[in-house]
């Protein structure tokens, strides 16, 4: 517990009555999310005090039609809240459309659909983050490897203004970073080649982004021998087994 718990005692009371907003609301939600039991209890006690007071008064019978409709609807529906997404959602939507009166159920179905969409987006975002993390780990390993070399590449006939660098470790592969590359001609891509023995080896193809930048991760060369030459040429989009096109980047 901190020395002073204010302003959170006040925030907790106001939150229970729905009056908190703006920065106070954000601060309080973060505070609650951090696990403040005192505030959670205070919110709960205030809500219960309001409920106790609200329900302690003399009853007022509602119109009988409300009960009739609810009972009829409950008899027709299955057990509520089961996690069978499609039938549940369809059931809710159908009932809402059929009666035209149960807007809360329709809203609930929409929220469920939205939650499903959010879950898919979250899963996709997690996957992207995991991929990015794996790539960063590989790049970090490359930078930490004492045998990693920095090879500078200069623009050639196919891309005179281009500049490139390759971080290369014979045992760990490499990373090509290039800038100021023009878009390749239609049907063409850029291809990176490594030369370890007598024959060049295709190390991957790429297309620069709109700003002319490109990054290409290259797996370790399986030949075992030290790579002597790295170059980038323009090749057909389907790929080539050996460099045939104009050279875009080559060592200085």
């Amino acid at each position: 517990m901190s020395v002073s718990h204010e302003p959170f005692d006040t925030f907790a009371a106001l939150h229970a009555v729905g009056a908190l907003d703006g920065d106070d609301l954000r601060a309080f939600e973060a505070h609650l999310a951090a696990g403040c039991d005192r505030c959670a209890t205070l919110v709960q006690q205030t809500e219960q005090a309001l409920a106790r007071a609200a329900m302690a008064g003399p009853p007022e019978p509602p119109p009988s039609a409300v009960r009739e409709q609810l009972v009829k609807r409950a008899a027709a529906a299955g057990a509520p809240g089961r996690r069978r997404w499609l039938p549940w959602t369809l059931g809710i939507v159908a009932a809402a459309i059929a009666t035209g009166a149960f807007s809360a159920a329709y809203v609930a179905a929409r929220y469920e659909a939205r939650l499903g969409q959010m879950a898919r987006e979250t899963a996709a975002a997690k996957e992207r983050v995991a991929r990015t993390e794996a790539e960063l780990r590989e790049e970090l390993a490359l930078l930490r490897d004492p045998t990693t070399l920095l090879v500078e590449l200069r623009g050639q006939a196919a891309a005179p203004g281009a500049v490139g660098r390759v971080l290369w470790a014979d045992g760990g592969g490499g990373l090509l970073l290039a800038t100021q590359l023009p878009p390749p001609p239609p049907g063409k891509v850029y291809a990176l080649w490594t030369l370890a023995g007598d024959a060049p080896r295709a190390a991957g193809v790429f297309v620069p982004d709109e700003s002319g930048r490109a990054t290409l991760r290259v797996a370790a060369d399986g030949s075992g021998g030290p790579v002597r030459v790295l170059s980038v040429t323009v090749e057909p989009a389907g790929g080539a087994s050996a460099p045939t096109g104009a050279v875009a980047l080559a060592p200085r």
Partner: peptide, 12 residues
């Protein structure tokens, strides 16, 4: 009516 139907749906 909305409140009670919702309470049934959220009972779980």
């Amino acid at each position: 009516q909305d409140v009670f139907w919702e309470s049934r749906q959220r009972a779980r």
